[in-house]
Design a protein around this nucleic acid. Sequence first.
DNA 1: TAACCTTTGCAATCAAGTTGCAAAGGTACA
DNA 2: TGTACCTTTGCAACTTGATTGCAAAGGTTA
Lengths: 136, 136
Amino acid sequence: MIDKAEKMLASRNVNPTPTRVLVLSCLLKDARAQSLKDLEVTLYNSDRSSIFRTLKTFEEFKVVHSIEDGSGRVKYAVCEEGCNCDPEDLHYHFYCTNCSITYCLLDSPIPTVKLPANFKMSQANMVIKGLCDKCT
Amino acid sequence: MIDKAEKMLASRNVNPTPTRVLVLSCLLKDARAQSLKDLEVTLYNSDRSSIFRTLKTFEEFKVVHSIEDGSGRVKYAVCEEGCNCDPEDLHYHFYCTNCSITYCLLDSPIPTVKLPANFKMSQANMVIKGLCDKCT
DNA sequence: TAACCTTTGCAATCAAGTTGCAAAGGTACA
DNA sequence: TGTACCTTTGCAACTTGATTGCAAAGGTTA
Ligand SMILES: [Mn+2]
Ligand SMILES: [Mn+2]
Ligand SMILES: [Zn+2]
Ligand SMILES: [Zn+2]
């Protein structure tokens, strides 16, 4: 995972500092989207603000995308190869109201929604809520 | 608006106290979704916590629905007649990243998304972001 | 009037996110 | 090797939206 993380950072032109490699490895390790708090717990040797700034950097360089799932904690998930976070790269997310896990539904790209005249879409945050397979 | 508010509260079995009628009138008056802070400013004679609890009550009784638009402030908009906030009653929302206004796209019901096996949907929060007509 | 339930105002608290600042690391070059 | 310079990190403080405990105010009923 360390290896994959380093390669990914290189391909996105992000300086691969130890903290960054750790955070990205952590995100790569688990399929689920993780919050700042989640990462803080796992990477207890790193400071919250460092992880926070790392995530901001990752977002800026399209290493990860963020999901506002309504839990009160923004979650982060690794972007797919070639993702540019443009509308055509986006997908739905699923938030389990029981276990609070947020999943990327990579097989469900978001559709084109008809907007009122002169409205321009540039991003989206699509979250479906309910119970996941483990909680049904 | 006061009249409409009172009728709506009656139809949803919510005790029409002065504060509640005021809050609902305020929400009915403007098409845009409003945050607790927005309402606090308009209804400067009412206390924040009273407005807050009013909104919670409204949500519980399907008088309003809430939208997490990623602005850090939950917005509230009046439910349509007959709305039960079930998946088939939901619609997309549009958040303008320039003026921070959130619009209900009432003409855009949300589609059925294919979920992984044994995932059950019960709610959704779908937000499209970009520039509204005034900000384009 | 007394008992009782609901609603409201006020102050305090919580939690997530964010920032200023100085120390630590690294690199380039005289 | 020493110094200037830029980046990254840790720590502590702060900001802000949301939420809650509690007592006072309103209303209803017996
Ligand atoms: Mn995702
Ligand atoms: Mn709406
Ligand atoms: Zn679950
Ligand atoms: Zn706008």
